[in-house]
Write a protein that binds this DNA or RNA. Sequence first.
DNA 1: GATGAATGAGCATTCATTCAT
DNA 2: AATGAATGAATGCTCATTCAT
Lengths: 200, 200, 200, 200
Amino acid sequence: MPAIQERAQARYQQILDAALSVFTRRGYREALVDDIAAEAETSKGGVYFHFPGKQAIFLALLDRSAGLLMDRVREAVAAEVDPVAKADAALLAVLRLFSSHRSLARLFLVEAMGAGPELHARLAALHAEFSAFIRRNLDDAVQQGAIAPIDTELASLVWFGALNQLVTRWVIADDPRPLEARYPALRTLLLRTVGLEVTP
Amino acid sequence: MPAIQERAQARYQQILDAALSVFTRRGYREALVDDIAAEAETSKGGVYFHFPGKQAIFLALLDRSAGLLMDRVREAVAAEVDPVAKADAALLAVLRLFSSHRSLARLFLVEAMGAGPELHARLAALHAEFSAFIRRNLDDAVQQGAIAPIDTELASLVWFGALNQLVTRWVIADDPRPLEARYPALRTLLLRTVGLEVTP
Amino acid sequence: MPAIQERAQARYQQILDAALSVFTRRGYREALVDDIAAEAETSKGGVYFHFPGKQAIFLALLDRSAGLLMDRVREAVAAEVDPVAKADAALLAVLRLFSSHRSLARLFLVEAMGAGPELHARLAALHAEFSAFIRRNLDDAVQQGAIAPIDTELASLVWFGALNQLVTRWVIADDPRPLEARYPALRTLLLRTVGLEVTP
Amino acid sequence: MPAIQERAQARYQQILDAALSVFTRRGYREALVDDIAAEAETSKGGVYFHFPGKQAIFLALLDRSAGLLMDRVREAVAAEVDPVAKADAALLAVLRLFSSHRSLARLFLVEAMGAGPELHARLAALHAEFSAFIRRNLDDAVQQGAIAPIDTELASLVWFGALNQLVTRWVIADDPRPLEARYPALRTLLLRTVGLEVTP
DNA sequence: GATGAATGAGCATTCATTCAT
DNA sequence: AATGAATGAATGCTCATTCAT
């Protein structure tokens, strides 16, 4: 019965959609499983059929979102050849996705912290994955002589931290401007950290 | 009766000390008011005599810690004349304090997120305050011609984000190395964002 | 699934039964939700599934009891034609019900006062409803010329007050005599207030 | 040191005044000893120096007020010779006092019920005392042949209940009209219960 | 006499999770 | 798959009362 499995899949996604909305609106702590069930138009028992618990919902949501994010990043990166341009494209892809999905940004940067220590590990892994991605490209750039040898681990940390901060402030301040509007200027500053000078 | 008021003051600080310990050990949610009372060697009612509620304790703790942090920063900054050196000193002061008080860092950067949306506002204000401080110094540097005109708001955001990220990773990864050890390298990268080249 | 809803209905009534018992035995303040749950053979959470809070239980109980009371009154009144006889029957019906359900009387007249100001309003409404009922009948009697024109609002207040006092004293003094035994004499006095002379 | 004792007396009365205000405003349950202390411009400890507990405050207040009430009644009654006129004067005196001290009325008729079973006994005694006073006068009137022999215990209960109800409704409905305005009409109805016909 | 800090038993309420149907 | 009733451990908060100073 693929029809049934399809329905189950649909319900699973429905619940994640509802969870994104509820977690974003009320925060992890204040989000009730009842709220998620109601918004997913199912029952509490229904939610527990698909997920073992509240934290698991958050985790699944984080993973689904991270997958989406990395897909976008990989796509953007594939269009570039130059390592620095790749890293550059990755950052822009992140900004673009978050810009059009503010709730996703809130989920990643704000609510994830309130979901308990268990989540920190997973979140740290995601951060590390993205950081490592940037670092790899910077390493390539060094190797190719495009940039001078530097501590790429630290540089990727700076890039990631700056990106993080930009998005976080945009989320918390509820800034109505499109997030990527500030990217050219940010790009100029970040490239300088690796010794490249460009004009915005 | 200053003796009585002194005792009350002492108890107030005792409770905050206990709260710092408990919040950083168990996280905001898992921290019980009972735990705080026990560690402060008083009763639950005693805690509630001094504070209106759990969140207020966290808030007071955050404020006390922020005051301590800013004192250190101001002190370090006062020893410098050059605006860039001032901003530089501020960052180093932060790293030094957090390096010797990891629990404080955890409080500011991790637990604060789990303490509910009301805390986010206060935290954002603290971040903004520190960011603005850096920005002011960069503005001065521009004015004095020490650095070329740039978007100082963005630059301060980058500096703050990088600092934030460095400390956060150090906290979450439980990195045993002293935090300030990485500062010279970070400093080099950050100064490049404003067009200054120094060797670590 | 009417079976489920039936079970829920039954549990709801079970809780109200338990609440009547506990409230009359311990008073509103001293009554614990735990006691009610235990006596209803359910859990505290079960009680809170059916009611939003302790006061709501009391309110629902008051309403259910008032409904029962008014049903008895209406039934007794329907058997009479003469307006004065109707009012008369109403009072007797009240006495009879309370006489056989002392706990109900205690609930209405004593405990209701301890359940907070919100309850006073509801209670006042119930009193007003019953008073108005008596008054309507006295008005009819005046219209039909059965009794001389009088201030029926005041008369109904006197009747109600006397009835109230009789029951209250019976409840508080824990008088073992059946309550309605005193009704013939009371009836004689009350009818005199509207100018009718009967022998007990 | 009579000066000291005077000061203590004054403080004692101050606390009772504050208690009247607080109990009336918030009800017995919601009234905090802290509130009473604050309104009496003393400290919680100060209150406990003068009274053994919250309930004792209420009791003392009830007694002080009852004394005041009975003084007024006795005074009014002393001016009359005829037993029925005496009872009549007693009722009017009650109405007059309550009319000018609504908070006292609320204390006696509404809040007293919420102060727990221990208070019911004392309150019942006060009620009984006043009822008995009316009854004694009615008995005298029977003895003197002024009224026909009747169940004076029941009649006094009716009188008391009617009075009670009139005041209670006035208190709860927050009726702005002077309470005693309705007395002539009430008097007419009550006198009818003992076979006397007067015009308001 | 008075203060205010401290106590601690008490309790309503919440909510993630379970499970009979 | 889904429902919704039920569970019960967990916990923040209240407040009358005590007591050292």
